[in-house]
Simulated assay, not measured.
Amino acid sequence: MTIAADDAQHGTSHLYRAMRDFVQSMDDTLPGKFEITKEGIVHDLTTPNGPHELTAAHVRRRLEKVMPTECVAHTGAPDVEDVSEGILRHPDVMLIAEADMEGDGSFDPRTLIAAVEVVSRSTPDNDWVGKMRDYPLLGIPVYAIFDPRTATGTVLSDIHPTPHGPRYATRKDFVYGEDVTIAEWTISTADLPRYPNQ
């Protein structure tokens, strides 16, 4: 299902609320994960598998070993949301100060230090295209992608304006086995799992 936000200039907030209500009603009903993008609703039909979840866990633990205690590499709920942009996303790992996690509801994406995604086998374009577009629009300063399909990844930073909206200006690619710096913290990518038959 895709509903373009441009289709309803005046009704964008109403359309977003309708999509938000739909996503909330489906979260416990259908398998997979729902997110709202500038282009509509994205539904990753598959439940994250072992390599995906294990990669997120390794990255989270490695980051928390080098981050100050007042910061967290958070996995789980809630989402990050910008109602004015009509975007609801759920990063696999969110680097955020503990103080910015207080309160109810979704996190303000502008409080994130960085977002980390592990590429899904079933919807890789969601991580490599959609989130690469949405995260700078949300003001998330650093976006790191780990791709178990290819044992590679990238770190994107330095948001700058473009004719198509904010985009990341700096891209640093890496291969598994190299050290990678996400925001201010450097971790190893050695021994991260890969998807089978890759």
Rank of each mutant, 00 (worst) to 15 (best):
residue 24 Q to N: 09
residue 86 G to H: 13
residue 136 P to C: 00
residue 84 S to P: 01
residue 6 D to E: 15
residue 24 Q to F: 15
residue 26 M to G: 03
residue 178 E to D: 11
residue 82 D to T: 14
residue 111 T to I: 00
residue 143 Y to G: 06
residue 33 K to V: 13
residue 104 D to E: 06
residue 146 F to I: 01
residue 129 V to L: 04
residue 25 S to N: 02
residue 11 G to H: 07
residue 118 V to N: 05
residue 190 A to G: 10
residue 26 M to N: 05
residue 158 D to Q: 08
residue 96 I to M: 02
residue 105 G to L: 00
residue 173 D to P: 11
residue 98 E to V: 04
residue 16 Y to W: 14
residue 156 L to K: 03
residue 40 G to M: 02
residue 197 N to G: 14
residue 151 A to Q: 10
residue 133 R to K: 10
residue 62 R to E: 13
residue 75 T to P: 01
residue 77 A to M: 03
residue 156 L to H: 08
residue 42 V to H: 02
residue 141 P to K: 07
residue 24 Q to Y: 15
residue 51 P to I: 11
residue 123 T to W: 03
residue 19 M to Q: 10
residue 161 P to M: 12
residue 30 L to E: 09
residue 106 S to M: 15
residue 74 H to D: 13
residue 189 T to C: 12
residue 94 M to T: 02
residue 139 G to S: 06
residue 102 E to R: 09
residue 106 S to G: 14
residue 77 A to K: 04
residue 30 L to P: 04
residue 58 H to R: 15
residue 76 G to L: 04
residue 163 P to W: 11
residue 28 D to G: 06
residue 77 A to D: 03
residue 73 A to M: 12
residue 110 R to G: 14
residue 63 L to D: 06
residue 190 A to R: 04
residue 49 N to A: 13
residue 95 L to T: 09
residue 51 P to W: 05
residue 131 K to N: 00
residue 24 Q to K: 10
residue 72 V to P: 01
residue 13 S to V: 11
residue 71 C to K: 07
residue 158 D to A: 13
residue 74 H to F: 15
residue 62 R to A: 14
residue 43 H to R: 11
residue 144 A to S: 08
residue 145 I to N: 03
residue 182 I to G: 07
residue 184 E to F: 13
residue 114 A to F: 10
residue 120 S to M: 08
residue 197 N to M: 12
residue 21 D to V: 03
residue 105 G to T: 00
residue 11 G to E: 07
residue 107 F to Y: 04
residue 124 P to D: 01
residue 95 L to A: 05
residue 54 L to R: 08
residue 115 A to H: 09
residue 91 P to R: 00
residue 25 S to E: 00
residue 34 F to H: 06
residue 28 D to L: 05
residue 80 V to P: 08
residue 148 P to W: 00
residue 129 V to K: 01
residue 140 I to G: 03
residue 72 V to Y: 14
residue 65 K to D: 12
residue 80 V to S: 03
residue 185 W to P: 10
residue 50 G to N: 11
residue 175 V to H: 13
residue 187 I to N: 09
residue 179 D to H: 05
residue 92 D to R: 01
residue 22 F to P: 01
residue 131 K to Y: 09
residue 111 T to W: 05
residue 17 R to V: 15
residue 169 A to D: 08
residue 136 P to W: 04
residue 76 G to N: 05
residue 97 A to H: 10
residue 197 N to Y: 08
residue 45 L to G: 02
residue 2 T to G: 11
residue 167 R to G: 09
residue 47 T to G: 08
residue 61 R to K: 03
residue 76 G to W: 11
residue 178 E to G: 07
residue 10 H to P: 15
residue 8 A to K: 12
residue 14 H to L: 11
residue 193 P to I: 02
residue 37 T to K: 07
residue 38 K to I: 10
residue 85 E to P: 06
residue 20 R to Q: 06
residue 162 T to V: 13
residue 152 T to D: 00
residue 195 Y to F: 01
residue 185 W to H: 04
residue 163 P to H: 08
residue 15 L to C: 10
residue 176 Y to I: 00
residue 23 V to L: 05
residue 160 H to V: 01
residue 140 I to N: 10
residue 53 E to D: 15
residue 38 K to H: 08
residue 23 V to N: 12
residue 7 D to E: 15
residue 42 V to G: 06
residue 2 T to Q: 05
residue 13 S to N: 13
